[in-house]
Measured scan of single mutants.
Amino acid sequence: AKPPKTVTVKVEVTNADGETQTRTVTLTNLPKDLKPGDTVTLPETGQTARIVEITP
């Protein structure tokens, strides 16, 4: 079996106070056609994050 493909992405997350924070997260099994501006759900927090940058 192939190991899951991990991708490092820079995302913007809005916290409970309405502040936008930029975080770098490593995600696995992202859709192939994901692009900056799309939103993903962070598995560890369940927060919705907007992708700023994808590092191949």
Rank of each mutant, 00 (worst) to 15 (best):
A1Y: 11
P3H: 10
T24H: 06
A49D: 00
P31Y: 13
G46E: 03
P43V: 06
G18Q: 02
G37R: 01
T39W: 15
T14D: 04
L34C: 05
P4E: 10
P56H: 14
T6M: 12
K35M: 08
L27F: 11
D17A: 12
N29R: 11
I51Q: 00
K35I: 05
V11P: 00
V9Y: 11
T41D: 04
A1T: 13
L42E: 02
P3K: 06
D17F: 12
K5H: 13
V13R: 01
Q47G: 04
P36C: 06
V52F: 03
K2F: 13
T6H: 12
K2T: 13
P56Q: 11
T6A: 12
L30C: 10
G37P: 00
T39G: 02
N15Q: 06
N15I: 06
V11D: 00
R23S: 05
K5I: 13
L42P: 00
T39C: 08
G46D: 04
V9R: 00
E44Y: 08
K10H: 04
T14N: 05
E19N: 10
V7D: 03
T20K: 11
T41Q: 08
A49M: 04
A49P: 00
P31S: 13
V25Q: 02
V9D: 00
T39L: 14
T41L: 12
V13D: 01
K32W: 14
K2N: 13
T48P: 10
D38R: 02
A49G: 10
T22Y: 15
V25C: 10
I54K: 01
P56S: 14
T8M: 10
E53R: 06
T41F: 14
A1G: 11
P56G: 12
K5L: 13
T14Q: 09
A49W: 08
P43R: 07
A1W: 13
K32P: 14
P3L: 07
Q21S: 12
R50H: 04
L34W: 13
V13F: 15
L27P: 00
V25I: 14
T55A: 13
P31N: 12
V11M: 04
T20D: 02
L34R: 02
L30T: 10
P43H: 07
T41K: 08
G46M: 06
A49K: 00
T14E: 06
V7N: 04
E19C: 12
P3S: 05
G46T: 03
K10D: 02
Q47R: 04
N15V: 06
E19Q: 12
T48W: 07
V9H: 00
K10N: 03
V11H: 00
P36M: 07
P43G: 06
V7C: 10
T6Q: 12
P31V: 11
K35F: 05
G18M: 03
G37I: 00
T8F: 11
N15L: 12
T24D: 04
T14R: 09
L30G: 09
I54G: 01
N15A: 08
N29W: 10
K32E: 14
T28V: 12
D38G: 03
T41H: 08
E12W: 12
V11T: 01
T39Y: 15
R23Q: 07
P56I: 12
P4K: 08
V9A: 06
R50T: 13
I54W: 04
E44V: 09
A16S: 11
T55E: 12
T6N: 08
V13S: 03
K35T: 04
A16M: 09
Q21I: 15
D33T: 09
P36H: 04
Q47I: 07
D33R: 06
Q21R: 08
R50F: 09
V52N: 01
Q21E: 15
T8L: 10
N29S: 09
V7K: 04
E12D: 04
R50N: 03
P56M: 14
A49Q: 00
G37S: 01
L30V: 15
R23C: 10
K35S: 05
E44N: 08
D38K: 02
T22D: 02
A16C: 08
P31H: 13
L27S: 03
D17Y: 11
L34Y: 06
T48I: 14
D17G: 06
R23N: 03
K2E: 13
N15C: 07
T22E: 07
D33S: 08
K5Q: 12
I51F: 04
T55L: 15
L30A: 14
T6F: 13
P43F: 07
T6E: 08
I54D: 01
D38C: 03
T14V: 13
V25P: 00
R23W: 15
V40G: 00
V40M: 10
T14H: 06
A16L: 08
K10M: 10
D33M: 08
V25D: 01
V9T: 01
T20F: 07
T28D: 07
I51S: 00
Q21D: 08
D33E: 12
R23L: 15
G46Y: 03
T22Q: 10
Q47T: 05
D38P: 00
K10Q: 05
G37N: 03
T22A: 05
L27V: 04
T28N: 07
Q47H: 05
T8A: 05
N15T: 12
Q47L: 10
P56K: 08
T48N: 07
T48C: 07
P4Q: 12
G37K: 01
P31Q: 13
T26K: 08
G37C: 03
V40C: 03
K2L: 13
T55D: 11
E12T: 10
P43I: 08
P3W: 10
L42K: 00
K35H: 06
I54T: 02
A1E: 12
K5D: 14
K35R: 09
E12L: 14
D33N: 10
T39Q: 09
N15H: 06
P3T: 06
A1L: 12
N15S: 10
P3E: 10
V9C: 08
T24C: 07
R23I: 15
G37D: 02
L34N: 01
T24W: 15
T14S: 06
E53T: 07
E12M: 13
P3G: 07
T41C: 04
T22G: 03
N29E: 06
Q21K: 08
G18D: 02
T8I: 14
P31E: 14
P3D: 11
D33H: 12
E53Y: 10
K32D: 14
K35Y: 05
T39F: 15
T39R: 06
D38Y: 03
V52W: 02
I51W: 00
G18I: 01
P43D: 07
E44K: 07
V13M: 07
K35P: 00
P31L: 13
T8D: 05
R50V: 14
R23F: 15
V11A: 02
T41M: 11
V13T: 06
V9W: 02
T41P: 03
I54A: 02
K32G: 13
D38I: 03
T39V: 12
D33P: 07
V13A: 02
Q47K: 04
T26P: 02
P31A: 11
T55V: 15
G37V: 00
L30M: 14
P3A: 06
E44M: 09
T26C: 05
L27M: 09
L42H: 02
P36N: 04
V9F: 06
E19K: 13
G18L: 02
Q47N: 04
A16F: 09
L27Q: 01
Q21T: 14
V25S: 01
V11R: 00
I54P: 01
E19G: 09
L27D: 01
A49T: 01
V25Y: 11
T55W: 15
T14K: 10
P3Y: 09
P3R: 04
Q47Y: 05
E12A: 08
P31T: 14
E19M: 11
T20S: 07
K32L: 13
V25T: 03
D17S: 11
L42I: 10
P43L: 07
T26W: 07
K5R: 15
L34E: 00
L42Y: 02
D17Q: 12
L42D: 05
E19S: 15
T26H: 10
D17R: 11
D33Y: 09
K10G: 01
K5W: 14
Q47S: 04
